[in-house]
Structures are given as structure tokens and as C-alpha cells.
């Protein structure tokens, strides 16, 4: 087994295990930190798939942005009147049944299709291609999504603004 593949295995295991911690941990703050590991693990996997730009974007957007937002959310909602609520969960059996059903479906799809026969290519840099595609073929979605982000920005500010207490 090459060092390359060993590294891959390590990353894959980290990703999967920390995802399980996210799901199973009793305290939400542990989940948040486990999520950090999962996201970084995904960034590592992207590198194996010639997605250098996406890997960096993953770290910047997910780790630098979304995760921080989630952590803020966790910290700002800690002061809950009923402490038992923090760790409350739904029935684990129902949830597990749902998860396993999903795993069965996806597993079956992976298993039943001959994916393995597709070709494998060497690593190539994709950043420049993404850049040129973004401004040519994907220009319209790009513009549309920028409008969407603007709307989100305004919406988030609107929702997040402090209102006068009317009670």
C-alpha cells in the first residue's frame, strides 16, 4: 500500500468517524467541533479528486464561514431555561431506522451499478478552468447567484436586527 493511499484511508476514516460523532454526541458543542473535522476531511478528499480550488473553497466557505456561524449559533443559544433540553433527542430507534434505510438505498445504488469501470485520470489543476468557465458558460448562474446572495444578505440583516421589545 502506497503512502498516498494510506493517507487517503486516514482522511476517509477521519471524515466518516467524525461525521458519526456529529450525529451521536450528546452535547451540541462537541458535534460542532466534530463537524469541523468532517469538513476538513472533505477538503482533503477533494484534493484526491483534482479539485484543488474546491478544496480551498471548502475550507474557506465551510470551515471559515458556515462553521463559525454554527458555533455562534450554538454559543448564543446556550442560555436555555431548561438544561435538560440541551441534550434532548428524539427516539434513537426511529432515527436509526431512517438512517439505515437511506444507507441501504444508497449502498444498493453504488453496489448495483458498474461504476468501477470508469476511467481514472491523473491529477490536474482545475482552478483556471473553473475561472474561465465561470465567466463564460456559467455566467448567468453566476450572476443569478450573486443576486441571491444579495437577497440573503438583506434578509439575514432584516431577520437579525434587534427589534424593540413590545411586551
Amino acid at each position: 500500500m502506497e503512502i498516498n493511499e494510506m493517507l487517503f484511508l486516514a482522511i476517509a476514516l477521519t471524515t466518516v468517524l467524525s461525521a458519526l460523532i456529529v450525529a451521536l454526541s450528546k452535547k451540541i458543542i462537541y458535534s460542532a467541533f466534530a463537524l469541523l473535522l468532517t469538513l476538513i476531511g472533505f477538503a482533503g478528499l477533494f484534493i484526491y479528486l483534482s479539485a484543488d480550488f474546491l478544496s480551498m473553497a471548502q475550507i474557506m466557505i465551510y470551515v471559515g464561514g458556515i462553521l463559525i456561524l454554527i458555533l455562534f449559533g450554538v454559543l448564543m443559544t446556550q442560555r436555555i431555561y431548561d438544561p435538560s433540553q440541551i441534550t434532548a433527542h428524539n427516539s434513537i430507534w426511529v432515527s436509526l431506522a431512517g438512517g439505515i434505510a437511506m444507507a441501504a438505498i444508497t449502498g444498493a445504488v453504488v453496489w448495483l451499478n458498474p461504476w468501477g469501470k470508469t476511467l481514472a485520470k491523473d491529477f490536474e489543476y482545475s482552478t483556471s478552468r473553473i475561472g474561465s468557465e465561470l465567466l463564460t458558460k456559467y455566467l448567468l448562474p453566476f450572476e443569478v447567484i450573486s443576486v441571491l446572495l444579495l437577497a440573503v444578505l438583506i434578509g439575514a440583516v432584516y431577520l437579525g436586527r434587534s427589534r424593540e421589545v413590545h411586551k
Partner: peptide, 20 residues
Amino acid sequence: VQNYILGALLGTVLIIIISL
């Protein structure tokens, strides 16, 4: 909300099973 998700999941499973 979670009941709805469960319902959606159930639906998906049914569809897959039927299609299989």
C-alpha cells in the same frame, strides 16, 4: 418537522423499492 422528513424518507424508500 422531523415527522415530515421521516415521511419523505418513507416515500423515497417506497419509490426505490417499487422501482427495483
